[in-house]
């Protein structure tokens, strides 16, 4: 406050510039009269800008114009929005919002992960079936002089491993059959594996026996089936 007073002191009676901080004189000053005149002029100017309905507008014209508004079309365009007040981070137009895409992608990913089955299906080549009729291949067996290992699978899915020199050995488990065939292969030079399967043995047992032959590098694997009980 003291600063303002000091400033107004050097020029106390200027016309209306002193923020009314002139020294009180106790009577209306010229300034006051001048101010009133100025205000009157301004009022007239403003009044001239106010829209008054004319007969041309029609009796029903009770639009905003009646209320002294200048109307939107008359608003001057030179008004500039202040830059700071509406400063807002805008997403640049060339950047897509990737969030929904990522959501969908994750859903798909989870779906395919859950449904994916990693069981690799492969296949074994097997000889075609011989005819049901009794074959005349009995002589053929005599002709073959190669060592062989025979795996018999009986109707109760039990393995028996026979080599040409050894007795038939019962193998209650898959792994025992595997090791016995392996031993037989190592001790002899057998290159043939004969699988004699009862028709009531399961397919899985036969495939295991076949696989054992493949593992032990048997050149020839034969399948014989029989319906004779062991």
């Amino acid at each position: 406050m003291s600063k303002k007073k000091k400033k107004s002191k050097p020029d106390p009676n200027t016309d209306g510039e002193g923020f009314g901080l002139n020294k009180p004189t106790g009577q209306f000053s010229d300034l006051d009269i001048e101010m009133k005149k100025k205000l009157a002029v301004e009022r007239e100017e403003l009044a001239s800008q106010i829209y008054r309905p004319t007969p041309e507008d029609g009796p029903d014209d009770v639009t905003y114009k009646n209320m002294g508004w200048r109307g939107i079309e008359n608003v001057e365009d030179d008004f500039e929005e202040p830059d700071v007040a509406f400063e807002k981070k805008e997403i640049p137009e060339d950047e897509l919002d990737m969030t929904p895409m990522v959501d969908v992608t994750f859903l798909l990913l989870i779906f395919f992960m859950v449904t994916a089955s990693f069981t690799l299906q492969k296949s074994l080549e097997q000889p075609p079936a011989k005819s049901d009729q009794p074959s005349t291949e009995v002589q053929e067996d005599d002709e073959v002089l190669d060592d062989y290992v025979q795996v018999t699978i009986d109707q109760t899915n039990t393995y028996y491993v026979t080599t040409r020199d050894d007795e038939e050995v019962e193998c209650p488990s898959d792994s025992e059959m595997r090791s016995r065939v392996k031993d037989a292969k190592e001790t002899s030079s057998a290159t043939r594996l004969i699988i004699l399967a009862h028709v009531d043995s399961t397919h899985a047992k036969l495939v295991t026996a076949w696989d054992t032959g493949v593992i032990n590098n048997m050149k020839e694997i034969e399948i014989q089936t029989t319906d004779e009980e062991f």
């Binding site: 492969k122 296949s123 074994l124 495939v207 696989d211 493949v214």
Partner: peptide, 11 residues
Amino acid sequence: ALPMASYGDSI
């Protein structure tokens, strides 16, 4: 439910 084997061909 195919039987298991350690070797096989892919066809």
